[in-house]
Every structure is written in structure tokens, then in C-alpha cells.
Design a protein around this nucleic acid. Structure first.
Lengths: 180, 180
DNA sequence: TTTTTTATTGACTGATCAGTCAATTAAAGG
DNA sequence: CCTTTAATTGACTGATCAGTCAATAAAAAA
């Protein structure tokens, strides 16, 4: 499928360049087609990138479901954190795409809407996972969401030493639950 | 001073656009001069933006010094966190510039170096402030640095509801110190 | 005043790129 | 086999912009 190839090529290209300033031509060439065809299938550059982010988010959502399902009831939070740092979600190119997506969401309405969906879902997942394990799930969820995003940010910049990221978030989570 | 005006205009323009894709012409016009003059003083667009980030970082460093100085020895960490959320450092345009700076640091050598300086200094400040207040200052500093960056990230995207950001980081800091 | 240096700009250039389109090839349907 | 539909592309276009430069104005030095 051409659309799938373009979505994959988009993530790879952005991951390699580290910026959203990749041309449609580059993406199309990597996907093995002409830039005109890319336009034919998606209409424009913005829509190509949004499709790529939707794909990343659906893979993320699937990973979350998978981890939550096979988690014992009292370990939902650990499963949720684990999902965020699964290889599919935490690959350098993926993280780089996220970082650029954040920047885009500041100026692009569609990106902002897509981001809000992710944030709301993460928040509600966190609150649910925290219920019964701390006194103020809402407040702790906010803090933990920032912790996850911040760890992502640093991962995108570190490149290599991504080790310890999940452990860091787990540490914060445990500390927050024990003291609130 | 022309250079100062350009630096200020750069931050404003990026803050308003939410992206690094602002033209030298826009920046120069906001600073009340021609784009040719902007090139005359800085040499190129990249250097204009780097100068703006250096300015932001020097203001930040000054705020950190100020807060640390007037803090009692046992409250260094609180002072450090407070500095990060001072109006000068936490203004929407400033946070937006930071976010774009992060993205740039993925592909630009000079930006990466500048970012590393900031990260190293923040880390060493955190470790110093944590010494004697928890068992594993190094580890906690990593977690807290991510917490601060993540909170910044969310601030750039929230726009309005920046309230509670400092409180969130403080909450995380206290929890981490009590449990490690 | 004259000269030299600095500040300043409008007008260009060269390159890049998103998006279009008419034309070609291939596939599907009848 | 013929026809209709879909896939595919090379070649363009129009616009944008970073960076240059020669020329002018202003200020400083002599």
C-alpha cells in the first residue's frame, strides 16, 4: 500500500533529519515513488505528516491496550508506563517525530486537536491506573504526564543513552504515590 | 542597540508564530530595520536565533543566581525550581523559543552544544541542591530535570493554564526526596 | 572642511519547494 | 478486444526567502 509506505518513510525521514523541514520529494523518494504521487494520495505535506502521527498514535494506543490487558489489576500504572517505553513507541525516529509534532501543535489547528486527544487519553488512563493507589490521582496524573513527556524530550536529544528512562518514570511514580 | 532589538524581536516573533519558520524580514521589521541590516549584524538567520537563545539562557542563569543567593542553605532546591518558573523564564514566548530550540538541537551542532551547557549546569545545580536531602542526588536530579523540561513542554502547548506548573514540580521534588 | 569609517537600505539573485497538470501506462470491467 | 478507470510521472509554475551588493546617508576623525 502506497499510503503506508509514505507514512513509514515520513517517520524515517523526520527521524533522520531531526526536523519537519523535509521535502515531499525526499519522503516520496524514500517510499519509492514520485512526489506527485505523494500529493495524489495525501493532498499535501501537512496531511502526510498528520497521517504519520495518527499512525504513531494508533500504534501507541494498541501497545497501551496490550500492556493493560495482560497486567494484574494492581499493576495498571506500571503497565501503562511500560507501554510508553516499548520499542515501538520509544524508537528514536518516533520520539523525534513526537518532538516535531509538539512544535507543530502550537500553530496547526489539526495537530493541536490530535495532540489533545492523546493528552486526554493519557490523563484518563493515568487517573484510572492511580485510583486507589494514592490520595490525589488527578494531581499526580498531571505530574506524571509531564514526567513522561519530559523523559521523551530528553530521549530525543540524547540519541544513545536512552537507558534508564523507564526506570526514572517508575521512580517518580512510586515516590508520588507513597507521599500523596 | 540594534542587536538587542533583533534578539527581542526574534523571541517575540517565534513566540507568536510558534515555529522557527519566521523570516529574517519579519524579525527585522519588528525590530524596526531592514532585513539586510539584520544580516549585517548577525551574518545569518541561524546566528540570530542562537544569539536569542544565548540571551534567554543568560537571563535564566541570572535568575538562578539571584534565587540561590537569597535562599537559606536548606532551601536551595526550592529556590532553583522557583527560578525556572520566574516570569522572565516562563513567559509563553520564551517557552516557545525553548521548544523550537530543542528541535533545532537535534540537527544543529551549535545549538546542541548550547543545549548541553544548559543541561549540564541544571544537572549540577540540582545535584548540589539535593545533596544532604536525599540518598541518591544524581538519580533524583535526572528525574527532576525531565520533570522540569516536561512541565515546560506542556506550558508551551497549554498557553493559558500555566498555573500550577511550579507546584507540580515541587510536589515531585518532595516526593522524590522523601522516598530515596 | 575633507576624509574615513560606519550604518543603512532597495533591489537583486539563486535556490528551493509545494502543489498542479496534461500526458502516459497499467489494470479492471464488460 | 475495447473501454473505462486508476496509477504514475516529468515537467512546470508561482511563490518564498536567505543572503549579497552596490550605493547612499550619517557620523566620526582628521
Amino acid at each position: 500500500m502506497r499510503r503506508a509506505a509514505l507514512v513509514a518513510a515520513t517517520v524515517e525521514e523526520i527521524g533522520e533529519a531531526g526536523t519537519l523541514d523535509v521535502t515531499v520529494g525526499q519522503i516520496a523518494r524514500r517510499a519509492g515513488m514520485s512526489s506527485a504521487l505523494a500529493h495524489h494520495y495525501f493532498g499535501g505535506k501537512a496531511q502526510i505528516f498528520l497521517a504519520a502521527m495518527r499512525h504513531i498514535q494508533s500504534e501507541y494506543a494498541a501497545e497501551v491496550r496490550r500492556c493493560l490487558q495482560q497486567a494484574e489489576p494492581g499493576k495498571r500504572l506500571e503497565a501503562l508506563i511500560s507501554a510508553n517505553f516499548a520499542p515501538i513507541c520509544f524508537a528514536p525516529a518516533t520520539v523525534s517525530a513526537w518532538l516535531n509534532f509538539y512544535v507543530l501543535a502550537q500553530s496547526d489547528k489539526d495537530a493541536a486537536r490530535l495532540l489533545q486527544i492523546y493528552q486526554k487519553r493519557l490523563h484518563s488512563n493515568l487517573v484510572h491506573a492511580l485510583r486507589g493507589r494514592c490520595a490525589a490521582p488527578e494531581q499526580v496524573a498531571e505530574v506524571l504526564a509531564a514526567q513522561i513527556d519530559g523523559t521523551y524530550l530528553r530521549a530525543a536529544l540524547a540519541g544513545e543513552s536512552i537507558n534508564g528512562a523507564e526506570e526514572a518514570v517508575l521512580l517518580a511514580a512510586k515516590a508520588l504515590m507513597e507521599t500523596s
